[in-house]
Design a binder for these strands. Sequence first.
DNA 1: CGTAGCGAACAAATATTACGTTCGAAAGAT
DNA 2: ATCTTTCGAACGTAATATTTGTTCGCTACG
Lengths: 252, 252
Amino acid sequence: MAGTDRLRQITDAVRSAGRAGVAELAALTGASEMTIRRDLEVLAEQGILERYRGGARSLLLRGEEPPFALRTQEGLDAKRRIAAEVAGLIADGESVVLDSGTTCLEVARVLEHRRLTVVPLSLHAVNALAGAAQLTLLVPGGRPRQGELALTGPLTQASLAALRFDTAVIGCCGLTAADGLTAYDLDDAAVKRAAIASSRRVIAVAEAAKLTRTALAFVTAASALDAVVTDETATDEETDRLAAAGVTVRKV
Amino acid sequence: MAGTDRLRQITDAVRSAGRAGVAELAALTGASEMTIRRDLEVLAEQGILERYRGGARSLLLRGEEPPFALRTQEGLDAKRRIAAEVAGLIADGESVVLDSGTTCLEVARVLEHRRLTVVPLSLHAVNALAGAAQLTLLVPGGRPRQGELALTGPLTQASLAALRFDTAVIGCCGLTAADGLTAYDLDDAAVKRAAIASSRRVIAVAEAAKLTRTALAFVTAASALDAVVTDETATDEETDRLAAAGVTVRKV
DNA sequence: CGTAGCGAACAAATATTACGTTCGAAAGAT
DNA sequence: ATCTTTCGAACGTAATATTTGTTCGCTACG
């Protein structure tokens, strides 16, 4: 799909200016106005922007998390490498709780043909694993959040409380030695905590960018993590601080 | 896809004869042997048949339930009509538990844009409803059964026990006044019972063919049902008996 | 060790999707 | 109320993906 690139352009333009006109976007992308309108329709459906006559305004507040569909594409290579590394840390036969988020989705894809018990906390991962014959898939209950399809709420908490895992693979929005592992969404954070509480070992996955960020909801201190897998662009400064907190850090 | 028709032909031929050769199937369908081999590969992956050198043998035991992918297509019209009728019986704002099975999947599709709280017992229905903005989707926990993707097990039971519904829409494998509502799978039957136990009103959906069948696992007596929606090809004989048991019967 | 069947690789045909253009209708401006 | 602009449905075309057939070296089985 050549349109993906254009959708990105439109999203960026609308987000940075707050709003943009159809003609303007057509000139920017080189596509016809009709195509732009169709794109805007798609993006509006994803909740990324809001249409008005003649253009669209951004619904993405600065500082807010960009939508899932966008994040899946970003740094895909790094995510794949991280996922492969995580897969290497998990032994056959283990039971694993797999957090929501795009990085964890890549982990799901890598685990598809392994002999494991996996409990994914996002429907995206559930779908990725639904066809796997070897793997024992267990779905926790919960309310899927729009777009993200992350399961949260009392049903999720109850499901996790009823289970015990060898390993938790946890994604995050921010992770620093000082502020610990943080998330944007409070409900998500509660689920992550429940997953960690039911697990013997915790592996956090975080692209380099996240090691310099702190999000709203505190999940757990860095010292509670057993391992962090990040990508090679992470600075030693950050990773050394995590290592000092007693975490095994892997850059890939 | 023109191939769907051919897959059906192959499935039928292999099932009725027990096994069939590649050349034979190529002659039957008018396709090349290579195409037949590819088809057999697909069907083998779905667990419908088993390949051997020169052909394939059926894995579908007589009397056993055919796989999900096949059943979705069968009597689709009747299922759609039944689904529309069920949708009419449900008022906005209700909370609904929606059983697994192909007929209930059609019900899910019809409910997509309604303002309801829906708890589907199959991941197929979950996926059909995941994009719906109006609708409050709640996923029960559980272990998805291969192909069917029906959620079963203690997690499902626990999720259902924690909820109360206005309406349960229940599918079945067999439904007669004498034997009640029955299912092929014991775990499924347990989930159906739990769903019924948490619901104020129970609507059963059943194509006409099911009104003459009885499957292994007993779920509930016909008298426990509030309504049955079936298609027009159902005989009065059957529907009258159900009506006599105190069930409202709708033929569409 | 020969032969029938297999499946990878390539090529052709076909279906699907994306895109642009036109045009009648609707929204907003004057 | 009228005019202008934008919208989106409908259609045709181009690009792309999927399906199907053919060839050919390889493998399993007799």
